[in-house]
């Protein structure tokens, strides 16, 4: 097939659909959000068009700074946990018999069908004092008394990692399946133990995939607003929780929009930084 540069308007036809979708579902809402973020809030009501930076100014406080810091920290922690657990898991999965692989992949896919609400309530039951896993530990003699594990940071981390884990595996799986198994065998014949071969060959060979997975889970975790509320204390609430709170309960759309814009900018900056760092190391 010969490829020619498009000449008539109709030649651009195939682009119309994706471009339209992008405009309707991304450009318009995002532009609206930016616009709203500089609007004036009306006490007890909605908002009026204006061009003020009050909403951003209000945001620049220690309190919101701390919340933003915690949100980023939580998202990075969840991304790191997912990748640290996900790589060995997916590596072993990709080397196991076909039947076992299918069972695991179906199970992981079915987690994707669960909503955040269901995952949140399931974990809050599991971590509760009356019906939770600590009762099992007591029964096994590992614990003297059943106790509540929620609300706590650990509970938030666990549930969010659980929620993001299937995505992690689905992104890592194709790369690990394609990885030539003789690479690790070669490393073993060269004197590396299986564990050393994993860290010196599998992990470095997958660097780009791992970076992509980290970024994906990071962004995914940044948007989580139900699990921190269901399983955490107020100090574990993320910026997404505050945005929801402002937008829905306080009816302060302009402030919510300002926070959302800020969150998007900060996460874009972090992703850019990660990609830049990745490229630097590759160029080395």
């Amino acid at each position: 097939m010969r490829r020619e540069p498009p000449q008539r308007l109709a030649d651009y036809g195939p682009l119309f659909f994706p471009a339209g979708m992008l405009i309707v579902f991304f450009v318009v809402p995002f532009a609206t959000m930016i616009a709203v973020s500089v609007f004036q809030r009306e006490q007890g009501g909605f908002y009026t068009p204006a061009f003020v930076f009050d909403n951003y100014a209000r945001f620049l406080s220690l309190f919101f700074g701390k919340v933003l810091g915690f949100s980023l920290f939580l998202a990075i922690a969840v991304a790191a946990a997912c990748v640290v657990i996900g790589i060995p898991f997916t590596y072993l999965l990709s080397r196991s018999p076909r039947k076992i692989q299918i069972v695991w992949l179906v199970a992981l896919l079915s987690i994707l069908s669960l909503s955040e609400v269901m995952i949140g309530f399931a974990w809050s039951t599991l971590f509760s004092r009356t019906a939770g896993i600590t009762n099992l530990f007591v029964w096994l003699g590992l614990m003297a008394q059943a106790q509540a594990l929620t609300p706590s940071f650990g509970a938030v981390m666990t549930a969010m990692t659980y929620q993001a884990f299937p995505y992690t595996v689905l992104v890592l799986y194709p790369a690990l399946v394609r990885l030539d198994p003789t690479l690790t065998e070669a490393a073993r014949t060269l004197g590396a133990s299986p564990v050393k071969a994993f860290f010196t060959v599998v992990v470095p060979a997958l660097r780009n995939t791992i970076l992509a997975t980290l970024i994906m889970v990071f962004i995914f975790a940044l948007g989580s607003y139900l699990l921190p509320q269901l399983l955490g204390r107020p100090q574990h609430w993320t910026l997404s929780v505050l945005i929801t709170d402002q937008a829905i309960y306080q009816s302060n759309m302009p402030f919510a929009a300002a926070m959302a814009v800020f969150l998007v900018l900060v996460s874009l900056a972090l992703v850019g930084l990660a990609l830049y760092a990745g490229q630097q190391r590759q160029a080395k």
Partner: peptide
């Protein structure tokens, strides 16, 4: 397949 390490 030679199995040379592609990242090195």
């Amino acid at each position: 397949s030679l199995a040379l390490f592609p990242h090195l």
